[in-house]
Design a protein around this nucleic acid. Sequence first.
DNA 1: TTGTACGCGTTATCAG
DNA 2: CTGATAACGCGTACAA
Lengths: 334, 334
Amino acid sequence: MVTLKELAKLLNVSVSTVSKALSDSNEIGEATKKRVTELAKELNYKPNRIAQQLKSSQTKVIGVVVPSLMNPFFAEVVHGIEKTLEEQNYDMTICISNESLEKEKRSFDLLSSGSVDGFIVAVARDTQIKYDIKHFEIISKNAPIVMFDRVLNDIDCNKVVVDDFNTVFEATRYLIQKESRKHILLISNIEELSVGKQRVNGYKKAVEEHYLKTNIIKLDREESPDELIKNYLEAHEEIDAIISIDHITGIMALNSVKALGKNVPEDISIIGFGYVDSEYVSSPKLSIINQKGFEIGKTSAEILINQLASNSKIEVKTMMVKSELNLKGTTKKA
Amino acid sequence: MVTLKELAKLLNVSVSTVSKALSDSNEIGEATKKRVTELAKELNYKPNRIAQQLKSSQTKVIGVVVPSLMNPFFAEVVHGIEKTLEEQNYDMTICISNESLEKEKRSFDLLSSGSVDGFIVAVARDTQIKYDIKHFEIISKNAPIVMFDRVLNDIDCNKVVVDDFNTVFEATRYLIQKESRKHILLISNIEELSVGKQRVNGYKKAVEEHYLKTNIIKLDREESPDELIKNYLEAHEEIDAIISIDHITGIMALNSVKALGKNVPEDISIIGFGYVDSEYVSSPKLSIINQKGFEIGKTSAEILINQLASNSKIEVKTMMVKSELNLKGTTKKA
DNA sequence: TTGTACGCGTTATCAG
DNA sequence: CTGATAACGCGTACAA
């Protein structure tokens, strides 16, 4: 790594001359500027970012803490974050909590010692269940946090969420009103998350508003969830629509229905919770509630960077990113 | 952020005393040690990592540059990397090249100014096509690189790859020998990548060895790849097996075959290139070649950290991670 | 126009 | 046992 000092020695000038020349300061004569920049280019000089960070006490790095990247929703969000950060010349260091409280704490520890300027976080499942949130309280004193999707109401920070309740409410109502469905099954495997509860409630409200019966399958880490779905459908011939509230069970449901010899969407309508690829791996293409992960990521990063720029305590708020109902082949009117 | 200096002032001792006390040096008396550690805990002191990095000129951070995280293979690899790094107390900063040469260069620029101790990289598609690899040459002078999957033969560094050729060769041979298939279709949408070529060659070798005809569909960014597959199958009634060499077309093929009223695996066997979730979204469950992304990530990180520890130029080599043929429901003998 | 001096927070060496 | 000092690389106020 070539440093200012080395350049200075080679050119027989002082370190600060070199520094100023490289930042194109008008204190420096054109001649020396040229000598300096040329040598710098030749030796491929790059200012040491660590030193800059220490000096300026800002890192231009954002810490991103997510439960997993193998959940396509989070992967999409991370891409959204990346997009904004890139435009603003920020980097990100990603920690994966793996849904574990301990790992989440550890990530905060590592990142909170000056390595990042702020955080974007989706809370681990474990943390939400145990509701041990001291690490959030501590960290939020020192650095700005933006939470998305998996959010902690008791922590005072900016939040970006999907309008989970209304989204599922409207999708359910769509099935009832526009497709005349009367026996709607909801499949859930994220019951214990705040977002999961919201979604289930949206479903319940729509169903109850029309004086229909709720039908819910909870899959918490089943051995063979697809079997369970199939068995349920066999035992409940009356089911004529299905809503799935996570990214994978919708496709499972579709396959189960087809295996039972029923037609989609003629006999049963299906709406999944989706991500961009789900339409490629299903036939007919799955109608989905699109969570807009990319948007969520972009928005989160923008909020954080704004907060960083205007380093005052601006009012903290919760942004709703509205999700879209993308109707494809598993509902009647695509 | 509370610093050593502040602690020193509060305790009326010198900065170096505090520093030593906290690192449990035996130069310091038990009494003062206790005073220091207690105050440090109380004020939640954490050594500033940036300062430590500047001092020690190592960051304990690895730069990970991948084309995308929405490809489940890369997501899996990143999880593998994360696992190893966590055990070794390293962090990672992730840059997403988005398959673009320019973004890849930019990522290197950002990370090469002392922010990371080493790199783990999968080369962008764009870079492989244009074969502009100067940035790799430059960087590999200063910091160790490990490449995985998408690899550049002309760069002298450690590499971790799937045994693409043999993997597909053996899968194809399996279809011919054990399942008596004679008309095997290969579906490819990554023809232009080194890994893609290897896989196609493996297929060709097996087919030609048995004096059969090759059937290949190339899908470079089609509008509706599923339609194309379906049309091909309709036009070629004789096809009795399909191999897909990326993570998504296998499921498309399965759906197309079912839509044409054929039975899987009775009429047609299918083998996809897989990741952990593919069996959940297909029915019957897709037989796959499992690329073992997690293994690849773990191995890459281990190699890099070893290299960093023994900071000599050890011999550079290419590790093969053997992939597995996971037979499920889309081949006859599961 | 150029150079000197200092500080960011830490650690290591050396002196007391 | 404790404290002063220097150094990591950079930027900047101030002096020349």
